[in-house]
Amino acid sequence: MSRMLVDADAIRALADILTETGLTEIEIAEKDNRIRVARGASGPVVHAPAPVAAAAPATSAPVAAPVDPANHPGAVNSPMVGIAYLTPDPSSPPFANEGQNVVAGQTLMLIEAMKTFNQIKAPRSGKLTRFLVSSGDPVEFGEPLAIIE
C-alpha cells in the first residue's frame, strides 16, 4: 500500500491563492506528485491523488474527503467500453478544452470500440470544468468522463 506525502504549507498557500483570486480550483503538478485544491460551497476541498514514495507524519490540517465525480450532477458518463480520445487525430486540437463553455450536442471526445469511433457529445450546455480521462485511456461503461457545470 503506497502512502501519500501531504505538504500542508503548499495546501495552505494554494487555498490562500484561491481566496485572493476568487478562483474555484487550482492544481500544481511536479513529476508524479499532484496537489489540487478546489473550493466548494463549504470552503476549500483538497485532492492529492498522486502516490508518493516517501512517507510523512500525519499533519493536523483537516483534509476533506474527495468528491466522487460519478455522483457529480454534471458528470458526462461513458455509454460504452473503449478507448477515449480527446482529439480527432494526434495532430489536431482537442474537441473541447477545460474551462470552455460547450453547447448541448457538441462533441467532447471520441470513444473507440471495436474499431469504430463514437462521438461523445455534451448532454447539456455549460462550462466544461474538467476532463476525468486523457487521450488513450481505456474507459468502462458508466465511467465519468468529464464534468459540465
Rank of each mutant, 00 (worst) to 15 (best):
P49A: 10
A50Q: 08
A50E: 09
P51H: 07
A56C: 11
P57E: 10
P57W: 11
A58Q: 14
T59V: 13
T59P: 03
A61S: 12
A61F: 13
A64V: 13
A64G: 12
A65K: 11
A65R: 10
A65P: 07
P69F: 05
P69Q: 06
P69E: 01
A70V: 05
N71K: 12
P73G: 02
P73T: 07
A75N: 02
A75W: 00
V76I: 12
V76C: 00
N77D: 04
S78C: 05
S78R: 00
P79E: 13
M80C: 07
V81K: 01
G82V: 06
G82P: 04
I83M: 08
I83P: 04
A84Q: 02
A84F: 06
A84T: 12
A84Y: 00
T87Y: 07
T87E: 15
T87Q: 14
P90N: 09
P90K: 02
S91M: 13
S92W: 06
S92H: 00
P93S: 04
P94G: 03
P94S: 09
P94W: 05
F95I: 11
F95C: 00
G99Y: 06
G99E: 03
G99V: 01
Q100N: 01
V103H: 14
V103A: 15
A104F: 03
G105I: 14
G105T: 14
Q106C: 05
Q106Y: 03
T107A: 06
T107R: 11
T107S: 01
T107I: 14
L110E: 14
I111E: 08
E112S: 03
E112L: 06
A113L: 04
A113D: 15
M114D: 15
K115R: 12
T116D: 15
F117A: 08
F117W: 12
N118I: 09
Q119S: 15
Q119A: 13
